[in-house]
Design a protein around this nucleic acid. Sequence first.
RNA 1: GCCGAUGUAGCUCAGCAGGCCAGAGCGGCUCACUUGUAAUGAGCAUGUCGGGGGUUCGAAUCCCUCCAUCGGCUCCA
Length: 640
Amino acid sequence: MSEEKLISVTFSDGVERRYPAGTSLFDIVAEIDLGSNVPLVARVDGRLVDLSTPVTSDCAVKLLSFESPEGKGVYWHSTSHILAQAVKELFPEAKLGVGPSIENGFYYDFDVQNPFSPGDLEKIEERMRRIVKADLPFRRKEVSRAEAQRLFTSKGEDYKVELIEELDAEEQPIIYQQDGFIDLCRGPHLPSTGYIKAFKLLSSSGAYWKGNERNPMLQRIYGISFPEQKQLDEYLSKLEEAKRRDHRRLGQELDLYSVHEDVGAGLIHWHPNGAVIRNVIEEFWKEEHWKRGYKLVYTPHIASERIYQISGHIENYSDLMYSPMDIDGIPYRLKPMNCPGHILIFKTRQRSYRDLPIRYAELGTVYRYERSGVLHGMLRVRGFTQDDSHIFCTEEQLPDEIVGVLDLVQFMMDTFGYSYKAYLSTRPEKSIGSDEAWEKATNTLRMTLEKMGLDYQVDPGEGVFYGPKIDIELEDALGREWQGPTIQVDFNLPERFDINYIGQDGREHSVVMIHRTVLGAMERFIGGLIEHYGGAFPVWLAPIQVAIIPITDVQMEYSERVAEALKADLIRVWVDRRSEKIGHKIRDAEIQKIPYMLVVGSREVKEGTLSLRKRGEGDLGSVKLEEFRTRILDEIRKRM
RNA sequence: GCCGAUGUAGCUCAGCAGGCCAGAGCGGCUCACUUGUAAUGAGCAUGUCGGGGGUUCGAAUCCCUCCAUCGGCUCCA
């Protein structure tokens, strides 16, 4: 009997086992009972590999199922290969682009004569089902560069050939094959196509090769897959839920806003209901800024082009600015940003160190040219109102100012029920300012985040050219991320505008300038809020806070009296005077997502009470007017 | 801006292998009902069939073009 060498495999749970050298992970897995947690791939000494990989020396192994991010990624990536195989079988002339896994699912890009139709997607799905059923193994093979070149050139896969040419010199091309389908791919992959239990192709669209708009446009197919049909159904119903919450749909149903072709794309008209929400938020915003030492200012919506030459906006942002209009022979522009105006106000007098910090804040409406294809409801528009502020301070004051802004951010986001993550963006390649200034400011931002105990990630090189920044990402009720507050230090404008202050030493010093927004823009923020709340706004924001529902006309007068009493406290009340059955009125109030309903019948009139009903919760029994008034005012005050 | 799809009543949608007055449901209006916690019934009216141009005896339907919207790409508050 030959001497079989045993090697030691340590699993992630600490268990150590011995196997003959050359045993594949797949065979190892077969011996272990892992319950329903089917392993898909493994990390061997930290490297992600196929289960078909043999273990040849002592190693640490971590088996990964669909429950892990890596497992999901591999699962989806393998599904994309199945998609590609199906497409190649049905459309042999299609050329392959790339087909990675993404945050939710996967895609694959193809160069085809005719874009895919919805009917094509069905046919492709059908073909994919056959490939899954055949349970074809994914086979990995390392090939030489020349071999890979020859192989993909002979297949006419120009894009793959391009990818091979771009491989690092030391990187060896790897191909994966299932059945007759061969793809250039780093892997790893599932053991076989049969692992895919439930999948769906979701959409197709154009996408530029390598994401560059000068490159040819390929046709991309998106899809998703899961180990269980139930998970796919859940995912699809989550998509449905997101659709139900879509701010464009709710904006229409709840009569919040509209956009008009005759006015122009991306320009929002706020209806009374939407305007209430905006007004309440703006009042709250102003109040909070007053409390925190900001001074509110207003600046004009158009300005001579000269100011944007000084600020550098013409130079750096001209493609997002609207063309000039001629006024008395001078070119004027619609305001794309509020900063120059605030700076001019700052500069109207000489500032002493005693004046600083100066915090100017403005709900400033700006207009920016957005390409037609990117417009999206209230979230991506061409005219919007930023909750903008510029803080002018000394270098010493910078840390405290950042703390102040972050504290405001936390307070605001807690009020709206968002959780959030912070990102620190450092110096990009193309930038202005000294190394020293960058380092100082970046460190200040970093130290402040740490001091406040905020979790943050560093985005290296993602800062703006004029300074480092902190971005806050919000997570909404559906777990989706939104771009939120941003705090930017600016080394550029103080220099361009030559803004400074007189220090204690009687000499001029340069001002440190911070741009910051907390909500971003009213349009985008409220569009996001609509989805966050699914249209069911908390009482303090609800356009109509109380619906009073008389059962018959006999209770109309009493109802009106109750309404008047509540209106006196600025509570937004509506009396449903329609000659409808109470069930109908309640249904409509629920659909309109009105937080409170007060049902008034003869019993209530006789007893001088109200029958209280809460949105989504149903009948709460009878209350006295005073009792209800106290309750709702308390909720409004607490911004519940 | 690019690729694809869509655009018919206030809303959601049917009609679109060209051909009598363009339809349904919801909503609206009128009338009746006076109602107890998620849809009372009857009647009436819905309209430059996205805009412009063309083909045709005849266009919501076919072609061209512009606009808007939707899904993506690229870009972004």
